[in-house]
């Protein structure tokens, strides 16, 4: 395995009671890769995301990111290492404004102290202005600059997904994990999303790993694809090789199993 890898996952296993949701999965991501994680429902894709971000306990194996060991670290520590994510079922702070949703995510970059905050020192004002500017920038990037003051929960589904991506960007991540970013979007929105994701990788130099059921999107967008079935990684490769992989076809079409 090349040592240039940014994210390294070695023999990762996640077990819930008697069920092995993820079984000795190993893969790695190089900087600025655009990769996809696919597989039938229940294959363990979201569980891998949860394990990577510390939201579910890892029962075996190792995760390292830029040579930092992340296995079983709390989620907030992992976020501070430069991994940001979105959620399959959108977890925005619904009762807060879109702008506040984004400003919260700048948390790890805030430098002023509690006392500065409590007594509103000049430093506080300066940094808050900077945070707001950054948030507006990120909103601009996803094309929602005009929705800053709206309550996040009041936006339509597709826009909520984009707010969630913008919020993840506020962390200044190196690795962005997107859990079904196109779910519930119409073809036009999906096309915009595709361009946005490409742009993020190219302009912000992000490494992106996404879970997606829209095969057209995955095949169009990703350079590298990991296929998961019943907790096992059954294939890795570029879109062309994945499409012709016998095991992948079987997993999706439900062919006979060994």
């Amino acid at each position: 395995m090349p040592t240039t890898a940014e994210l390294m996952v070695n023999d990762l296993s996640v077990q819930f009671g008697g069920l092995k949701a993820v079984n000795e999965v190993s893969f790695s991501l190089e900087p600025q890769t655009l990769a996809g994680l696919i597989g039938p429902n229940g294959a363990g894709k979201t569980t891998i995301f949860n394990a990577l971000t510390g939201l579910c306990p890892v029962t075996g194996g190792e995760i390292s990111f830029n040579d930092n060991k992340l296995t079983n670290q709390p989620p907030h520590t992992i976020a501070r290492c430069g991994i940001a994510r979105t959620f399959q079922n959108i977890r925005l702070f619904n009762n807060l404004s879109v702008l506040d949703n984004l400003r919260i995510a700048y948390h790890k970059n805030r430098r002023y102290s509690l006392l500065c905050g409590l007594f509103r020192s000049p430093r506080f004002h300066r940094e808050e202005a900077e945070i707001t500017a950054r948030a507006k920038e990120a909103l601009d990037l996803v094309g929602l600059a005009d929705k800053a003051e709206h309550l996040a929960g009041s936006l339509p589904y597709g826009e909520q997904r984009r707010v969630e991506i913008a919020r993840a960007l506020m962390l200044n991540p190196q690795l962005l994990l997107l859990d079904e970013p196109a779910a519930g979007m119409n073809p036009h929105e999906t096309q915009t999303l595709l361009e946005l994701i490409r742009q993020l990788r190219d302009n912000l130099k992000l490494t992106i790993l996404l879970i997606e059921h829209d095969m057209k999107l995955v095949m169009n967008l990703c350079e590298r694809i990991f296929v998961l079935d019943y907790g096992h990684l059954i294939a890795t490769g570029d879109p062309r090789s994945i499409q012709s992989d016998r095991r992948v076809v079987e997993a999706y079409l439900g062919g006979s199993r060994p």
């Binding site: 939201l55 907030h76 977890r91 919020r167």
Partner: peptide
């Protein structure tokens, strides 16, 4: 609002 989302934001 959402402890899990908050944690995942650091």
């Amino acid at each position: 609002e959402d402890e899990i989302a908050a944690e995942s934001l650091g």
